[in-house]
């Protein structure tokens, strides 16, 4: 079967600066793929190219069978995206946010209603749906943001540091959501800083200075780097980095 994400020598330059340098990798359908790297390693740039927000300087990339340089409009219908910045409308209620994001993907009212009911049952927190998002605790906001990114049942969902700044309990709950989506066949492409979260992934890649330094399952990586924590694997790779926080 053709991989759902596929890149070959994908490169992005901003002037003289090479943000992403010749990366090649593929992600299989239904996988939870962890995309790790220090700040400035080029994770977000790579992700933005895959989502069609940035045009690659050179190289090839395919998402859900479409070319990222030329067919980004077709890609947009097939992917969900949750950005690093918390990004729901705070002056809208949870329900209205879901209706809006469902609406701009062209979903019918019935489909949107079904989705809302699904999360209704899942979270059994009924009054939350009619409260303004701005008044929710951060953890709930993140969960709602994930739910809105999943409204149109995307093939792939891109999560850019989805659990930044929330406590371990909420992070765990968030990962339960991710697993549920993965069980239903959605491919998860996630960036994170937390190495315990890396352990939850089927496979991870670690980016250093715009290149992929290592890519395998967490288990194999730990064997290859002679250690028993992902933390240590990451540290061994990341300390070789030449550039610090640049992006």
């Amino acid at each position: 079967m053709e991989p759902i994400i596929f890149t070959k020598n994908l490169t992005k330059k901003f002037g003289d600066f090479i943000a992403v340098n010749n990366i090649s990798f593929s992600v299989e359908k239904g996988e939870i793929f962890g995309f790790l790297g220090a700040n400035g390693a080029g994770k977000t740039t790579a992700m933005k190219m895959l989502c069609g927000l940035l045009v690659p300087t050179s190289g090839l990339g395919k998402v859900a069978g479409y070319d990222i340089s030329t067919q980004s409009d077709s890609i947009k219908r097939r992917i969900g995206y949750m950005s690093q910045k918390f990004s729901l409308y705070e002056d809208l209620t949870v329900r209205e946010n879901m209706q809006f994001f469902g609406g701009i993907y062209g979903l019918r009212n019935k489909e949107i209603q079904k989705k809302i009911e699904y999360y209704h049952d899942l979270w059994s927190n009924n009054e939350m749906f009619d409260g303004l998002v701005g008044s929710l605790p951060l953890g709930w906001k993140q969960k709602v943001a994930f739910a809105t990114a999943m409204m149109h049942d995307p093939d792939i969902v891109f999560l850019d540091e989805p659990t930044g700044g929330v406590d371990p309990i909420v992070r765990r709950q968030f990962w339960e959501l991710i697993y549920k989506a993965s069980d239903q066949g959605t491919t998860i492409f996630v960036t994170t800083h937390y190495m315990d979260e890396a352990e939850y992934c089927n496979r991870v890649s670690i980016m250093v200075d715009g290149e992929i330094a290592a890519m395998d399952s967490p288990k194999n990586l730990k064997i290859a780097y002679h250690t028993d924590t992902m933390d240590d694997v990451f540290y061994q790779l990341a300390r070789k980095a030449q550039r610090s926080e640049t992006v």
Binding site: R77, K85, S87, Y105
Partner: peptide, 13 residues
Amino acid sequence: EMGTMEILLVSPF
């Protein structure tokens, strides 16, 4: 500023 623009740009809208 809110970051919602990115989400809109990723959508087919």
